[in-house]
Design a protein around this nucleic acid. Structure first.
Length: 644
DNA sequence: GCAAGGTC
C-alpha cells in the first residue's frame, strides 16, 4: 500500500482524483509538521544564557501539528505501507518531506524504503506524469539549505530578541506583566518514555546528518490548548497592551523596518527649494495644448523672463519630434510581481491578496501561487490555460501559437502562475483571477504595444523664451487591449511644423517648490524587499503587517511611517554595526543557501561560519546594551503613556 | 514571549 503524503489537503484531493488506484492511499499534512526550537535548558528567557544560544547545534524538534502527526503515525503503522512524499517541489517542501520521513522511519525502521514524487501543479496530467517517475530519495541538499536557514534565523532571532526585550524590561520599560512560565498546557508536563529520542543519525542519507532531538511530549501529553500551534492566532493578534513589551529582531523584519526608517530620514532631511516656470496655453489649427519653460530657481530672474515674454501673442515652432516607444508585454506571473500589481489595482494588502490566490489555487482555478519563476518550462502545455482564460473572460481569439515573452527567473520548483480553469464568481476573487488570466494572455498571445512620444520646442515672439510641449499617444495597442491595468494616459499635442507660428491664448508665471520623496506604499516596500532578497514569495507579504503589530511602524494614508520605537531601534543598532539592520544578513543567508545547494559547503560548517559573525556582533550589542536599553525604555514608557 | 518558513 502506497501512502502518498501531500503538503496540503487540496493537493491530496487532486492527487486522489488523478490517481484513483487501489493500493494507494492519499493523505496530507498542513505545512510543517515539526518546528525547530531551542533545547529545553534554554527555554527560559534569561540574560545570562543569551550567549549560549549562539552555540546551540543540537536542536529540539517539536511536533507542531499534532493532528497530522498522529494521523500519519497510524497510517504508517499499517503493515505493508510504503511512503511517497508528495510535498511541494521546493526546498521548504523538501524539509517538510524530511519531517514526514523522520516519523515514517521511526515506525518502519531506519532503512525503510520511500519515494519522492515531484510535480509543479495540481494538473491531472502533471500528477500522472509525476507518479510515473517517482524518485528514490529526497534531495538532501535542498533539505540542508532549508535546515540551515531555519537554524540561523532561530539562533540569531532568539538571541537578539531576548537581549533587546530583557534589557529594556530590566531598565524599567516592561509593560504590564504576563507570566512567562508554564500553565499554558504547552510544556512537557507529561514525560513520555520516548522523550528525547534522537533522530539525527538514523535518517541520514547521502552523508547528511542532522542533529535533532524529537520531543514527543506534545503528542502523548494531555494538552488540549490550541495555542501551542497557534500561528493563526498570531496573525490576528492586534493589541499588545497586555503583553510584556517585545522588541524583536529578525533577518527579514529588521531590514524591512530599516527601509521605512531610511525613507523617513530622507524626508526629514529634505529641504524644499522654490522654483518658477513659464506656463502657457497655445493653440494650433484649432487644437489647444500646454507648453512650459524649464525651471528657474531665482525669483528675480524668473520675473524678468516673464516680463519679457508676457506680451507675446504668438510663438514660433523651433522643432517637432515624434519618437516611438515599445512597451513590452508583461512577463509570466511570479508571486512578487502579481502581488505588487494587485496591491496597486485593488488597494488591498499583499498578505490578504496572497490568501485569495491560495484559495483560488486550492479550488483549482489557478496554478500554484507561490513561485519565483517567470519563464515557462520547455514543453509547457498552453492549451488548457488558454481555454480557461478565454472562457473565463468571455474572449474569442483566432487560434495562434503561444509565444510567451520569458523572463530570467527560475526557482526550479514551480512554473509561473497561470489560469487553470475559468472562474465566473465575483468580488476580489474574480479580480485576482481575472488579473492572472489577462496577464497570461497578454504575455503569451499578444504583441508589445507601441506608444508615440511627441516633443515640441517653441520660442515666444517677444522675449524669446523657450517653451516645451510633450504629448503621448498609443499607436499599436498590442497587449494593452487585453491588459488595461496600467494603461498610459493619452494626451496629444497637435502635429507641428517647424517654423510655423502658433497662437498664445495666455501666458503665466507659476511658482512651485521641490517636494520630498513620499513615504513608502506597501507596493513600493514589497518591491524594495524583493530587490534585496528579503523574505520569499510566500512570506514577503507578511512583514509589513508584522512591523505594524510590533509597534515599529504605522500606516498613514496607506503609507508606512516608522514610530519612535522603530526609529530608535534602528538607530541604536545601526550605530553599532550597519549589518545589524541592513539587508546584508539576508544576502549572506541566501548566498550560503546557494553554496549548500551546489555542494560547495556542508550545512554544519555553513552554520558555524555564519553564526561566528553574528555572535561577534551580539557581544558588541551586549557591551553597549546599557545605552540601547535606555534609549528604548524612554520611548516605550512614553509610548505607553501616550496610548492611555 | 524569540525567527522565518510552510499552510489554514
Amino acid at each position: 500500500m502506497f501512502i502518498v503524503v501531500a503538503e496540503k489537503a487540496s493537493v491530496a484531493e487532486a492527487i486522489r482524483d488523478a490517481l484513483p488506484y487501489k493500493g494507494l492511499k492519499v493523505t496530507w499534512v498542513r505545512g510543517h509538521v515539526m518546528e525547530m526550537d531551542l533545547p529545553m535548558n534554554l527555554r527560559a528567557w534569561r540574560l545570562e544564557t543569551i550567549r549560549d544560544i549562539m552555540g546551540v547545534r543540537r536542536f529540539r524538534y517539536r511536533v507542531r501539528d499534532r493532528e497530522s502527526y498522529s494521523r500519519l503515525s497510524s497510517v504508517f503503522s499499517g503493515r505493508d505501507s510504503v511512503l511517497v512524499i508528495a510535498t511541494d517541489n521546493d526546498h521548504e517542501g523538501e524539509l517538510i518531506g524530511y519531517e514526514i520521513l523522520m516519523l515514517y522511519r521511526r515506525i518502519k525502521g531506519k532503512d525503510a524504503e520511500y519515494y519522492r514524487m515531484r510535480f509543479n501543479s495540481t494538473d491531472r496530467r502533471e500528477i500522472v506524469g509525476a507518479w510515473s517517475r517517482l524518485e528514490g530519495s529526497l534531495n538532501w541538499r535542498w533539505v540542508g539549505k532549508a535546515m540551515f536557514r531555519h537554524k540561523f534565523d532561530l539562533l540569531t532571532g532568539a538571541a537578539y530578541t531576548r537581549l533587546l526585550t530583557l534589557s529594556i524590561s530590566k531598565s524599567g520599560g516592561r509593560m504590564a506583566g504576563k507570566s512567562t512560565g508554564d500553565g499554558s498546557g504547552c510544556s512537557s508536563s507529561n514525560s513520555s518514555s520516548r522523550d528525547g529520542y534522537s533522530a539525527g543519525s538514523s535518517v541520514s542519507d547521502a552523508g547528511t546528518r542532522h542533529d535533532l532531538t524529537i520531543s514527543t511530549s506534545h503528542i502523548t501529553g494531555t494538552n488540549t490548548g490550541s495555542n501551542c500551534t497557534g500561528s493563526r492566532n498570531r496573525s490576528r493578534k492586534r493589541s499588545r497592551s497586555n503583553d510584556p513589551m517585545l522588541i524583536s529582531w529578525g533577518s527579514c523584519q529588521t531590514p524591512t523596518l530599516n527601509f521605512i526608517v531610511e525613507r523617513e530620514r530622507e524626508i526629514e532631511q529634505f529641504r524644499p527649494v522654490d522654483y518658477w516656470y513659464i506656463d502657457a496655453l497655445l493653440m494650433y489649427s484649432g487644437i489647444q495644448f500646454r507648453a512650459r519653460s524649464t525651471n528657474i530657481y531665482d525669483e528675480v530672474h524668473a520675473s524678468s523672463i516673464y516680463e519679457s515674454c508676457r506680451g507675446s501673442s504668438t510663438a514660433l515652432v523651433l522643432e517637432y519630434k515624434e519618437r516611438a516607444v515599445t512597451i513590452h508585454r508583461p512577463l509570466p506571473s511570479r508571486t512578487d510581481d502579481v502581488l505588487r500589481d494587485l496591491v496597486r489595482i485593488t488597494g488591498r494588502s499583499a498578505s490578504y491578496l496572497l490568501d485569495v490566490m491560495e484559495d483560488l489555487y486550492s479550488r483549482g482555478y489557478i496554478s500554484y501561487p507561490r513561485t519565483d519563476t517567470n519563464r515557462y518550462p520547455r514543453g509547457f502545455d498552453f492549451s488548457r490555460p488558454l481555454r480557461a482564460a478565454l472562457d473565463g473572460l468571455g474572449i474569442t481569439l483566432n487560434p495562434v501559437h503561444a509565444r510567451p515573452r520569458n523572463g530570467m527567473h527560475d526557482d526550479n520548483a514551480h512554473p509561473p502562475i497561470y489560469p487553470v480553469s475559468p472562474y465566473h464568481g465575483s468580488g476580489i476573487e474574480r479580480e485576482v483571477w481575472e488579473y492572472i488570466a489577462r496577464r497570461f494572455l497578454a504575455n503569451a498571445y499578444a504583441d508589445d504595444a507601441t506608444l508615440v512620444k511627441q516633443h515640441a520646442r517653441l520660442v515666444t515672439a517677444e522675449g524669446s523664451v523657450e517653451l516645451h510641449a510633450e504629448g503621448l499617444y498609443v499607436r499599436d495597442e498590442g497587449f494593452l487591449a487585453v491588459y488595461r491595468y496600467f494603461m498610459p494616459e493619452e494626451h496629444r499635442i497637435p502635429v507641428l511644423v517647424t517654423n510655423s507660428s502658433v497662437d498664445v491664448e495666455w501666458i503665466d508665471l507659476v511658482k512651485d517648490r521641490t517636494k520630498p520623496p513620499s513615504r513608502l506604499s506597501e507596493a513600493e516596500l514589497l518591491e524594495i524587499m524583493e530587490r534585496h532578497g528579503i523574505g520569499t514569495d510566500a512570506t514577503r507579504a507578511e512583514f509589513p503587517s508584522l512591523l505594524l503589530r510590533r509597534g515599529y511602524a504605522t500606516k498613514v494614508r496607506s503609507r508606512f511611517k516608522p514610530t519612535a520605537l522603530g526609529t530608535t531601534l534602528i538607530d541604536a543598532l545601526n550605530a553599532l554595526d550597519g549589518r545589524l539592520v541592513n539587508a546584508d544578513t539576508r544576502r549572506m543567508v541566501e548566498m550560503v543557501m546557494r553554496d549548500i545547494e551546489d555542494d560547495r559547503i556542508k550545512e554544519d560548517e555553513a552554520l558555524n561560519r555564519s553564526i561566528e559573525l553574528y555572535d561577534h556582533l551580539l557581544s558588541l550589542c551586549i557591551k553597549n546594551i546599557g545605552a540601547i536599553a535606555d534609549a528604548l525604555s524612554n520611548i516605550t514608557i512614553a509610548g505607553k503613556q501616550g496610548r492611555r
